[in-house]
Design a protein around this nucleic acid. Structure first.
Length: 155
DNA sequence: GCCAACGTTGGC
DNA sequence: GCCAACGTTGGC
């Protein structure tokens, strides 16, 4: 089982939206590195932090679980969808998605600035300068450390 | 709103 | 295959 961090702009899709829906497709990803993780690596049972990007402040807001492994993202085939990509076809889908289920919303957001203060999280991909990847792997020790932070509520 | 960082496109 | 130009992301 693996751990991930997945970004979404809360104005587009937030942790509250996921809580309300219980389960949702994680579609609209249009980056090849992220696509490869969706298609090849993410498995049912994997856990992921839900990260609110482009928000004030940006940070981790909860946890979700992968409930369906990678399959073609049909929003790429829909000309009326903002994520439409004419170069993707049913026979040769270019983009992939997974389905995720709501697990937990944290009592408070763990801000990017707060996370950066912890030595143990220095190597986290999402904290690196210039990082733009919307899906990144999270190491087991990073995952556990952040879960402890949530429990202590000293953030 | 600014802009640094990064990914993609396309001419050559 | 190179790389300049362009578009997007996302923190601040």
């Amino acid at each position: 089982m693996a751990y991930w961090l997945m970004k979404s702009e809360p104005t587009a899709f937030s942790i509250d939206d996921l809580e309300r829906l219980t389960v949702s497709g994680w579609d609209g990803v249009r980056n090849y590195q992220a696509r490869n993780m969706l298609r090849d690596q993410m498995q049912v049972g994997d856990l992921a932090f839900f990260y609110h990007s482009n928000s004030k402040p940006a940070g981790i807001v909860g946890v979700m679980r992968v409930v369906k492994a990678g399959y073609p993202d049909d929003t790429a085939l829909d000309a009326s969808n903002p994520h439409y990509d004419p170069s993707s076809t049913p026979d040769n889908p270019r983009w992939y998605q997974v389905d995720v289920a709501f697990v937990q919303k944290f009592p408070r957001l763990l801000s990017l600035a707060m996370l950066k203060q912890h030595v143990l999280l220095q190597e986290m991909q999402v904290l690196r300068k210039g990082n733009r990847l919307s899906i990144t792997p999270v190491a087991a020790d990073e995952w556990l450390f952040i879960q402890e932070l949530v429990k202590t509520e000293v953030f």
